[in-house]
Design a protein around this nucleic acid. Structure first.
Lengths: 334, 334
DNA sequence: CTGAAAGCGCTTACAG
DNA sequence: CTGAAAGCGCTTACAG
């Protein structure tokens, strides 16, 4: 505000009035001030206003833990862990659900413009354009659960590659030789890595990669599409996530197949879909706790010293064994 | 801080040092200062510190909307609406999940102590002790989706009574004469009101209230228990929420009954359980949008003028018709 | 060990 | 229409 005032040769009082559309400033000057503010990339400091007025312009919304329930989206659950870790470091988490419009139109959340936050944790893949936008802002950022080459920030991901690699090994150990993969392998980096882990396992066991067994599950926007199954089924499917595994089981059931008797199915995430699926899914559990700790540690260290280089940390998950995998005898495996 | 300084005849610098455990203050004085601060109910103003340091001690966590998914808890979905309305009023929402321990031990969230919020929206029923605790704090509070006689604050609830009343009327219109209710009627005020709406409908239609058809669904802590069904089933069940309706359907299926052919089932909330139930549930949809607007309006008006009396607003929902209700012919209804 | 002074970025009340 | 002064509640650097 001072800078703008200096530049225009007026007082900061006038700037304040102009920016708040209060009276006492000529329309001309107001206009000019707004332009310069915009040009200089001025961000209003709500904190100063808040302090002056004794108002934080924040409203706490409290939800008792038990009402957040078993059923909830993976990322919201993730948020709860992050908030807890943040709290241990004397920070508060402010959750912002980025609307699709804001993402498409590259608008940053108000909490950024209002200087209400010191840093940003991005949970889940966002568009490249948006990442470019984020590259241009000055507060530290940590991307969680996906990575992007162009992102100039730290990244914490789950070890997708080894997770699925080990899961596929597990299937092979159980006698499966014809194994499919469900997921749009061009969609997100996570899915791609999971697919590659799957592929590595096949390679190591000298099993063929059958293109007919690679099933697409979503369009390029991430919207789920109907699964198109091949005439002849493999003996097992590796799904890129639990929700798709859940959908696949329903699809198989509707076609008259039983899981795991006719076809085994495994997932990834160990989220609510792994629980409500019938049979319950053998899946890979992401270590949310550890990922949260890592992400918070990274962003706080960036807050302390801006200098550090960006890191990419991948956190190992572990397989949760349940009932969706059938052990095949020699003849079935053929 | 000034007050403490005045009271102890020392400077505010000393207070600052003592409270932050910095050196330059005798242990004795430190101790004394902390005691007095505690006694005077001093709350540190993070905002001032933040402003001085240029740090907000807040970290934004951004989740793209599409990842919050279809599946999520009712209250989390509610939060998203509230956050949006808050944003329209230039406020930010800070979500705090109140842990069961904190609730039991009556500890207020840090965002309150740190003066990070101007007011509190409480989403979902909390213990009476906690309400008493909240009665004692000075920032405005609005309770959402439940009410409590002792709460000294505004309340926004959904019209539970009329919702279930109309739903029960709907069943009766479809020929049902023996209707049960599922829910612990001593548990929450919402369930109680829903039960009373159900009862009113029976009364108006001169149908008997059969105690054997009132099924308990949870213990006093709100934990779900196994549903104990009567020997002879009614032709329809009104459930106090969709999740219980979902559970009931599973229970009925496992006992060999079909829904709605053998027994109709209706819910309340129109949440994810209404969608994943098979058949999909006829249920009452809560007007989250309107409730959010009302709650935000109430709390902001309280922020502007502390004087106003407390209001209790109930917002009407509407019935969503799906496939879980069977129209009975005369003979079946008997 | 203790405190007076200055300043963080804004706004309000008042004077010109 | 414009601006100088004071103050919001804290902390830091410095002096005693």
């Amino acid at each position: 505000m001072r800078d703008i005032a200096a530049r225009l040769g007026v007082s900061s009082v006038t700037i304040s009035k102009a920016l708040n559309d209060k009276e006492g400033v000529s329309d001309e000057l107001k206009q000019k001030i707004k332009e310069v503010a915009e040009e200089m990339g001025y961000r209003f400091n709500t904190l100063a206003k808040s302090m002056k007025e004794g108002q934080a312009y924040n409203i706490g919304v409290i939800i008792p833990e038990r009402f957040t329930g078993e059923i909830q989206s993976f990322y919201l659950k993730f948020y709860q862990h992050i908030a807890r870790v943040l709290d241990q470091h004397q920070y508060s988490g402010i959750l912002h659900i980025l609307s699709s419009e804001d993402e498409d139109q590259n608008v940053l959340p108000r909490i950024y413009y209002d200087k209400k936050v010191d840093g940003l944790l991005i949970l889940g893949q966002i568009s490249n354009d948006y990442i470019n936008l984020l590259n241009r802002i000055e507060i530290p950022i940590v991307y969680i659960d996906f990575y992007n080459e162009d992102a100039e920030a730290d990244t914490v991901i789950t070890d997708n590659f080894y997770g699925v690699y080990e899961m596929t090994n597990h299937l092979i150990k159980n006698g499966h030789k014809e194994i499919g993969f469900v997921g749009n392998i061009y969609s997100t980096s996570s899915i791609q890595d999971r697919y590659l882990g799957f592929y590595k396992s096949l390679l190591e066991h000298k099993l063929p990669l059958n293109q007919a067994y690679i099933i697409n599950d979503r369009d390029d926007r991430g919207k789920y599409i109907d699964l198109e199954l091949p005439e002849k089924l493999p003996t097992a499917f590796v799904c890129n996530c639990d929700q798709i595994a859940y959908n696949l089981i329903n699809k198989l059931n509707s076609l008259g197949y039983r899981v795991p008797e006719d076809c085994s199915v495994v997932g990834f995430d160990n989220d609510i879909y792994a629980q409500i699926a019938e049979p319950k899914l053998t899946t890979v559990e992401v270590d949310i706790e550890e990922m949260s700790r890592t992400a918070v540690k990274l962003i706080i260290s960036k807050l302390k010293s801006k200098q550090k280089k960006w890191e990419q940390v991948s956190v190992k998950g572990k397989i949760v064994y349940r009932n969706s995998v059938m052990q095949l005898t020699e003849s079935q495996g053929k």
